[in-house]
Amino acid sequence: MVQEVAIGHETVRWEPVPAEDAVVQVQNLNLFYGKHQALYNVSVNFPRNKITAIIGPSGCGKSTLLRSLNRMNDLVPGVRLEGKVIYEGVDIYDTQVDPVEVRRHIGMVFQKPNPFPKTIFENVVFGLRLQGQKTGLDEVAQRALERAALWDEVKDKLGEIALRLSGGQQQRLCIARAIATEPPLLLLDEPTSALDPIATERIESLLIELKQHYSLVIVTHNMQQAARIADRTVFMHLGVLIEEGPTNQMFTNPRDKRTEAYITGRFG
């Protein structure tokens, strides 16, 4: 469905993700930390088997938006939320929904690699063990590590403590840990911000690989990264979703002046 949006004197053609292609639909989301409002009436559809990047200056609410997709914000005391986040036809904020179950379906990778102080193997199968799975762990661990492009580096030292790995390896281990339970949707919160360029490149190509199996939403402060890997991009500013669309279009022909200013580096 093509929309035509009038901005000033210009008219821009814009195509939101149709509901049937969306893995998650955010509808009129308002979020408050106590009295402070962090998200203002955000609505956006995140497409299936694509990478969507959320960009914007720091403090714009991009991490908050990401964390409301798997109810991680529930862990912050004093958070209040209005609106809907519909995942596979169910509002995950419905009172009947168990947040623990939500997080099982929607995986997450964090800014800093955060492996548990356990062995590499135990890290990967942690989620499976939580669900009481006792057999076939070896196969699942191998598949997850292969998909995370880490298998060749660690296959001989699965029993080693994960903290000995390099930063980039640790982050790929965290990705392997997140995908071991086969979550259809994977959220990534600035996953390469703590890594060097070489490790970053490996993770980026890995994310493009992962598109085949998973839908991905990635928060990044790195414009080039969004341009390199994202199919669609969401631009946030001060808790408001300013603009959303195919990455190419947003980077070459932004509809909003603030987007243009941010992308061209005038603030942020």
């Binding site: 798997n70 991680m72 939500v102 964090f110 955060n114 548990f116 356990k118 939580l130 965290c174 997140a178």
Partner: peptide, 26 residues
């Protein structure tokens, strides 16, 4: 670190599991 707790929650752990399987061992 908080990040370890978040990692466990993001994998669908209950609070009890976060405490006993991540925080206690760490």
């Amino acid at each position: 670190p908080r990040s370890l707790r978040e990692a466990a929650y993001a994998l669908g752990a209950t609070k009890f599991e976060v405490v006993t399987k991540v925080v206690f061992p760490a």
